[in-house]
């Protein structure tokens, strides 16, 4: 099935290494101009998938289609796709200018055009003052921008980013995430990011695909994935979640901490529901529905909020109400039916 999609389409991609199924039957449509993220723990196959899009790895079966054209059998040098490598893979013997110019020069772009385009790229990424320096003379953040410029100067139809921020420290990372998002919106190129950092995925992406064991297990906008995690793995991998196991009968979900009302009947009889810590409301009086009486067992101060653990069930609540809670306080937890996510397992 070749779509009329202007973006990138992966169809039935499989890849095994020896006995390990690195990528299992992945089918994906990525829209032109969107910031797409492959999110998953290390070893989930997300980098392998990215490398197959770049043409650095060959899939066992399946096809890669870019703007309606099948590029499955095209080598990397014929794909209008560029990559920012995790290690940046800058050429250590070339200066910053030559690094950025490399892709243009190897395609024999006239030198005059090379000069102007590289200069534009330098300016865009605020590297204008250092074209003659060498990668080993630059900081990690600067090298990351060089790697970005080196890829973007070729005006790729798709830009691939393989964990580009893993080498930066936490503070810089947060700043670069925002800059990267702005850059993508300004240019309107298709970006595909691979990361294991869920915050990063939520900040930058238009859409996220969560991968595990070589498969895509959920796919959607950051809000969809965060608010309605499909299963236990996603609920816990993206942010924190309270998981409540129990049985559904007589129109109620019966858990260890008490019966809860759901918005609708779940597709199973015995299963798990999730609720995010920040979605649980605290009150001194009994809520109308789904109220649970609980005792404070631990309080963790986190600056902008408090993490409060409750007995029974070790329920975690994230609260910004700066009331003076004490360990041992008894409170009502309001687990509103619309906040309870039925997990699919």
């Amino acid at each position: 099935m070749i779509t009329d999609n202007k973006g990138l389409s992966l169809q039935g991609i499989n890849k095994t290494y020896g006995k390990v199924n690195a990528v299992k039957d992945v089918t994906l449509d990525i829209n032109s101009g969107e910031f797409f993220t492959l999110l998953g723990p290390s070893g989930c196959g997300k980098t392998t998938l990215l490398r197959m899009i770049a043409g650095l790895e060959l899939q066992d079966s399946g096809s890669v289609i870019l703007e309606g054209q099948d590029i499955t059998r095209l080598p990397a040098i014929k794909r209008q796709i560029n990559t920012v490598f995790q290690s940046y893979a800058l050429f250590p013997h070339l200066n910053i200018f030559e690094n950025i110019a490399f892709g243009l020069r190897s395609r024999k772009v006239p030198e005059k055009e090379v000069q102007t385009r590289v200069q534009e790229a330098l300016d865009m990424l605020e590297l204008g003052t250092m074209p003659n320096r060498y990668p080993h003379q630059l900081s990690g953040g600067q090298n990351q921008r060089v790697a970005l410029a080196r890829a973007l100067v070729n005006e790729p139809k798709v830009l691939l980013l393989d964990e580009p921020m893993s080498a930066l420290d936490a503070k810089l990372r947060a700043q670069v995430q925002v800059e990267l998002r702005r850059l993508q919106q300004k240019l309107g190129h298709t970006f595909i990011l691979v990361t294991h950092d869920q915050d990063e995925a939520l900040v930058v992406s238009d859409r996220i695909a969560v991968m595990k064991d070589g498969q895509i297990i959920q796919f959607g906008t950051p809000e969809e994935v965060y608010d309605l995690p499909k299963n236990r793995f996603i609920a816990q991998f993206l942010g924190a979640a309270n998981l409540l196991a129990g049985r559904f009968h007589d129109g109620m979900f019966h858990t260890d901490i008490g019966p809860l009302e759901l918005e609708g009947p779940p597709p199973w009889e015995r299963g798990v529901i999730a609720i995010r810590p920040e979605w649980i409301k605290l009150s001194d009086t009994k809520p109308e529905k789904n109220g649970i009486k609980a005792k404070v067992s631990e309080i963790i101060y986190r600056g902008t909020n408090l993490d409060i653990w409750f007995e029974p069930g070790a329920i975690r609540v994230r609260s910004s109400t700066y009331k003076n809670f004490k360990i041992g306080d008894e409170l009502w937890l309001d687990l509103a039916a619309e906040e309870l996510v039925v997990l699919n397992e």
Binding site: L58, P75, A76
Partner: peptide
Amino acid sequence: RLIIWYGELLT
């Protein structure tokens, strides 16, 4: 068989 080796696609 086709393989990709150091970024090059060849038999």
